[in-house]
Design a binder for these strands. Sequence first.
DNA 1: AGTATTGATTTATGCGGACAAATATTATAA
DNA 2: TTATAATATTTGTCCGCATAAATCAATACT
Lengths: 366, 366
Amino acid sequence: MESKYQKVKDALKEAILSGKYPIDQKLPTETELMERFNVSRYTVRRAVGDLETEHFIYRIQGGGMFVQDWHKDWSNESDSKMIGVVTTHIADYIFPQIIYGIDQVISDNGYSLLLGNTHNNHEKERKSLINMLNTKVAGLIIEPTQSALPNPNMDLYQEIMDDQIPTLFINANYGATYPQLKFPFVTTADVDAERKLIDYLFGLGHESIIGVFQVDDIQGVHRMDGFVQAYQQHPDISYKSNLIMYQSGDALDKITHRIETYLKDEHRPTAIACYNDQLAIRVLAFVKQLGLRVPEDISIVGFDNYQMSEYMSPALTTLNHEKEQMGQAAGKMIVDLLNHKPVESITYDPQLIVRKSATAPQKPTA
Amino acid sequence: MESKYQKVKDALKEAILSGKYPIDQKLPTETELMERFNVSRYTVRRAVGDLETEHFIYRIQGGGMFVQDWHKDWSNESDSKMIGVVTTHIADYIFPQIIYGIDQVISDNGYSLLLGNTHNNHEKERKSLINMLNTKVAGLIIEPTQSALPNPNMDLYQEIMDDQIPTLFINANYGATYPQLKFPFVTTADVDAERKLIDYLFGLGHESIIGVFQVDDIQGVHRMDGFVQAYQQHPDISYKSNLIMYQSGDALDKITHRIETYLKDEHRPTAIACYNDQLAIRVLAFVKQLGLRVPEDISIVGFDNYQMSEYMSPALTTLNHEKEQMGQAAGKMIVDLLNHKPVESITYDPQLIVRKSATAPQKPTA
DNA sequence: AGTATTGATTTATGCGGACAAATATTATAA
DNA sequence: TTATAATATTTGTCCGCATAAATCAATACT
């Protein structure tokens, strides 16, 4: 005698396989199935529970039961409990904290973290992505490499899309650049924040500011855009702006040399706005070495609120970047994606953190 | 809130994985489990049902429940190209750079990096290790958690040993504490280095020094030993030493409060030797806040040469820690182990890095 | 000594009910 | 018309209970 739950299970499986319920189609509710098969709720749940572990259906609490894409060969890869994280720099700067945030959430959900490092280099990014695809990760979190430049690995991204691997981007919305990639993202409102920061400097009385931005990252471009926008709203002083653009491969002394040139000018700039705190800390050390006092002689501001920034002398005025929180959000998002829950992209608004590295300029720059 | 059946399931899985129930061993009956976990029959059955589908146990009607040979699963053919790295903190301090160094080497050899974070917590270490074993890593690099305390996860280490998974330790030689674990290691000569550092302070004229060390890590204990040894070689002034011990969970203000007490003394200490640069940076900020000048009023030294230490004011005098190089060495070592090449443990000798945070004391401390 | 029977134990299947948590829908207010 | 709040729906977790089927161990019988 075949058991009741077996009968229910077989009937449902048959209906799915025959195409009566197409993929992503909503199945009857548990109550309906109870009546249709004249069994208890336990029996229904036992049947659909089995079907779920066999990947024929997926269930959403409060939502319903749906047909899974059983065409795919889940059998050999579905037990992958790894989330691939591809970043430009795993060791430097803010990314360890983002990774930490991701790890917190996904490890609670039984996943672990497979790391890939691109050194902001497209070739290594390619290697990493191929590796991730080969190890059949359950999901991917990617910080795109040199996101302001055309990406030669688009074929791989397309493949990720085709394979329907749950994926999201950090620090960049690739969907804006490549419309075919409709991945959700977690990012910061870089343009607005930088504009707010420069406005703050204007408010202190600064008029001539050096902006130093890394322009092969989309983040850097955005921050530069914010810098430019702030000046555009003050056409009377916009001629006093100074812009230094660099790329990730450039040596630091190239940048400092250009800064030095600006500072030698008679009407020298009174403030420097840096791409991020990492750069700001180095620029700070450089201008102190030139004999300038910060902030009396020159103000310096950064971006990201790096953990060590408050311990600098003077403590850095900067914009907050919710690194850990951002990582947690990304972790939660990828887990939701894996559970077929709807997700929404998040944009964080950096807040101004006023410390000691920026004050009103001592002498009018007239 | 984790569900009850999850708790039961995890507890049983843990017991099986840890070897408490050997293969083909009979598990407690459902009734026993109901009493032991104080849950209903449904909950027990839900838990063991899951474990059965995950092939951890098999059940015989009327007979009982038994442990499945989960061992076989991974030992047969593991062409896994993943190296598991278990660290105490992935985001903080020096570890990102060590991870970076490891990644450099192993990614060149076609391996990728599976990360585990223990938060210096034995329970999380256990979770991480089990996870690593389940995902069939090809090799393991472990920084032991609270390495100065007895480790309750010794059964898992034993299992790693039994399964002959290529493994090495970072920052600790567990073989010294647990003779049965003959894993190679990469570490630093903490005792000698700290003694050298304190001797350097003696040479500057300091006699009364505060040593602040984290004592649940073996590294911290070693550094404290070096501090003590330095004083032992100068019996005439050894009564002027001041020792503060703390554990990883302690709040910073507890430590700073004790430092403040010492500094209020009439013959107050003229130098502070900190467990690491991370602590030194915070202590530096604290004593400056007290109105003391560094190094004029008090000298401060750290350990590890954290990347930001040179940008402090004053720049930190410290001991070098070849983080990236150490990571590379660990990476090379694990690759060698995987290729059945002989390896030798490495001990790095930290070099003194003299910067600005330590000078001769202003007034004789007589 | 070997075998059949019996009863206790243990897992398998099944029912009904209760409440929680997430989602969907509808009604309401701005 | 658009948000917001309240309500209903739907799946998730948990309990107690009952019966069936398989196994095990002790006993009685040949």
